[in-house]
């Protein structure tokens, strides 16, 4: 599997560390309540198909990436810097 890092170009999967669903970017307010936090930390859509997830280019530039990827075909779609996806 190869991931096109917006900074480094397309690189082998071994350079990246996988974190999980990009839900992790949507941190609730501290007082958002049990449901919101359970959703944020634990419950997952876990789709068999396209998904949006977080990868860290640990063996490369150190950028956190938001990667659109299909969990069935492993096809990679859009890749963006997490910092730009947020701000």
């Amino acid at each position: 599997m190869r991931i096109p890092c917006p900074l480094c170009g397309t690189r082998d999967r071994r350079e990246f560390w996988y974190r999980g669903a990009a839900v992790d970017l949507e941190r609730p307010a501290p007082d958002a309540g049990v449901e919101a936090w359970d959703d944020f930390v634990y419950l997952r859509e876990n789709p068999a198909g396209p998904t949006r997830e977080l990868w860290y280019h640990e063996g490369g530039c150190g950028a956190w990436l938001v990667v659109e990827r299909d969990t069935v075909t492993h096809e990679i779609g859009r890749v963006a810097l997490a910092s730009e996806e947020r701000s």
Binding site: W17, R19, D24, W64, S83
Partner: peptide, 14 residues
């Protein structure tokens, strides 16, 4: 280090 990068880039990029 990975955690700090995540918190910065992913949660507090500003």
């Amino acid at each position: 280090m990975k955690h700090l990068e995540f918190v910065h880039q992913g949660l507090q990029p500003d």
